[in-house]
Design a protein around this nucleic acid. Structure first.
Lengths: 238, 238
DNA sequence: CAGTGGTCTAGACCACCCT
DNA sequence: GGGTGGTCTAGACCACTGC
């Protein structure tokens, strides 16, 4: 996005690796070579390579060089704050969003606790299900602090709320906490999802914070058991 | 671990935050102040603060400063390559490990595929269940490439295999990929876990790589649905 | 305006690897 | 010994927030 040099280098190589232009196991140019070829300093190159390493694109070995990993392919993310729309587009699957509710409602005890508000405070409630290849397999229940989001409409909810928040309202999402657990299906789950008699659902609770560290969204994503998948890449602490 | 300056700063503040010595919302000293007080340069301080930020301890705001987040408490990890033993100790729960099997066996078709070996190659198979507060809720099935691990014994398996690998064999684990899904319980799950009639288990497949990028361990961690929990902290891409 | 974090530079020394 | 990545320095300029 920015005109940062390290960001340019990062994207150049992330793309080359994802496209397979540089095969898994291959060595990328040394830090000094990259510094020369991009006309920058080694520390700046190192910033880019650090990002590539963190995100599972490369692996750096002292004394030898940096090598391409073969994990770049299935970067299947619930990880990393990616939206349903981005995800289904990336996978090229036929998908559809069904909007059940887009309303301002008083927060229930549970919801107000999740959003750290007083019970009864007005919040936006958006309830949608996600249909993939003809089956409703995800139920998304979103709650927003109303001062931040202005007015939501079913049309916005059907497209991408994140698009609207980031590009129209210029809110900048900063970080989020996710909790994954498995819980018994509720009557609502049975009504709005095609559960096929499965007794439980995977629940992903997502707390989204803005740049000023205020919590402004709580989302409960309820997945049919057999359609849930989560991939995580982790480097050893040190 | 190392005598690195940035590592020292990171640990100092990670500890202060975890202990509550610096409360959530408080501002930590500016980068220049930290550089002075640690007798180092600003870039080195920035490296430490970058780590604190990534791990959810602080949040940096341009023009204002760095502020403590309140997520440091329940850093409940399957995230980050932490072992069962470390985890249960951290939580102070009564737990026990039951070792069912510690043997060299020819790899099945499935296992050889996971470890990228030829079918029938000899691998170490370790099967253990984890009992927490009297119930067996996790079934761990580990497979190791034998050239790397030498000899495993039930005694080692009962303590911590990672301890043995890292401190005795001096293998250095580098990175890992995890996949989480939910699958029907197998007869083995029913035999070795206290499933309470639950029909499915959460399966965490873990692929562990060494510094030289070779895959050397595949682990299948099978959790009872109601005892599974996963927490993830993520910063927005940019 | 002074103070903050974000980016970048042009060096330096070290530890490690390979030949 | 020459090449590599890991750490660190002492500056610089910018963009942003606050007063």
């Amino acid at each position: 996005m920015s005109a940062n040099i390290y960001w340019t280098i990062y994207n150049d190589y992330a793309e080359k690796i994802q496209n397979g232009d540089i095969p898994a196991g291959a060595k990328i140019p040394s830090e000094s070579e990259l510094a020369d070829s991009y006309g920058t300093s080694r520390e700046t190159v190192r910033k880019a390579l650090g990002l590539l390493s963190q995100n599972g694109y490369i692996h750096k070995v002292k004394g030898k060089g940096s090598f391409v990993l073969d994990l770049g392919k299935m970067k299947f993310p619930i990880t990393g704050l990616i939206s349903f729309k981005e995800m289904s587009e990336r996978l090229g699957r036929k998908s559809r969003t069904l909007v059940y509710k887009t309303e301002r409602v008083p927060a229930s005890r549970v919801i107000s606790a999740h959003l750290d508000l007083n019970e009864g405070t007005t919040v936006w409630e958006v309830i949608r299900s996600r249909e993939i290849e003809g089956e409703r397999v995800i139920l998304d229940k979103d709650y927003f602090v109303p001062e931040r989001v202005g007015t939501l409409t079913p049309e916005i909810a059907a497209r991408s709320i994140y698009d609207y928040l980031e590009n129209t309202l210029n809110l900048s999402i900063s970080y989020a906490k996710k909790e994954i657990s498995v819980e018994p299906a509720t009557p609502e789950d049975r009504a709005l999802l095609d559960l096929n008699n499965l007794s439980h659902v995977v629940v992903v609770r997502n707390y989204v914070y803005l740049e000023d560290t205020t919590l402004f969204q709580y989302t409960e994503s309820r997945h049919r058991l057999d359609k849930f998948r989560f991939v995580d890449f982790a480097r050893r602490a040190h």
